[in-house]
Amino acid sequence: MSMDIQTRFAIVLMSALLIPGCADNSSNSGTTSGTAVTGDSDTAGGESKGLIGYTTMSLTNPFFKVIGDSMTEEAAKHGYEVIVVSGDDDVNKQSNQIDDFIVKGVSAIVLTPCDPRSIGQAIKKANDKGIPVFTNDTGYDGNEGEVECHIATDNLQGGRLAGEAMVKLLGEAGGTVLVVHKPDASSCLLRVRGFTEIVDAHNAKDGSGKIDVVATLDGKGSREAGYAVTKDAIVSNPDLSAIFAINDPSALGARSALEEAGKQDAVTIIGFDGEKAGKEAILKGTILCDPVQFPDQMGKTTIEMILKYFDGEDVPGEILIPSKLYYREDAEKDPTLQPEEGA
């Protein structure tokens, strides 16, 4: 019996492998009718100009959902269709998704790498098939594959904005600052570098109070770790005046630690990102301000670069989108926060 299964399976496998073999001929001989299709495919019954495949890091993070949605919207305006899939933080899954994109014959692939280095082989595969690859948010860090253009937030400039906000806050009197860091993320390294640049420049000037960064701790970008390191820091630095946290979750973690110690009025927090929870905290006044990122603009710019590429223009290797400071008065005017207010 088992031999029969074996033979049967061999037949299935062989027919599966043979069918496409015959197909290559028939699919092309099918074109003998040879109707010339003009380049203007919009006239051909509104058919799409092509597919763009986007595999993101994780769709559970609303940030990437916004990028995907704005890409879909922008592409639709120009007759392209976007397929959005989530790599779920799994490089293998993401690599398989790129295989599927190639089979589907997409015109371009966009990805936010789940791992900036392990994705190289998959990018190379797309390159070998002549499909252009674009990245956004997180870049590809390697040399096996070739990326046409990387679109991201200008994290260095964002860090500088946070530094400026800190100087505005403490500049006159000076004070002590805790930095809640995430040193394994290249984007966060840039944020802290920009922040330190501005603070150092301020300290080099005469006549105003010095801003002293008393500790830089790894808050892992998460609420839990942000809470834990802040707890430790306020014990060893009881006179702390402010905190700069490299994203909203760790800023909110820091806030919980301050509230528990009854220090929420003595210590001011500056965050980063401007995700919904962060903006809500700014509206409530629990976080002073955020340099915010613009995921919608990131998605839109990604599509613009792809269109530019198909228009035969030379695309720059990297596009950085500047971030902006977002204070309470911005939150009060923010339409995305209003419905929650009413409810």
């Binding site: 069918i19 197909a23 290559d24 009718s33 010339a36 299709v37």
Partner: peptide, 15 residues
């Protein structure tokens, strides 16, 4: 000028 696209199941492409 390009050749007319052929209908073929993407699933059954040898690739």
């Amino acid at each position: 000028v390009s050749a007319a696209p052929a209908l073929w199941p993407t699933f059954a492409k040898s690739e």
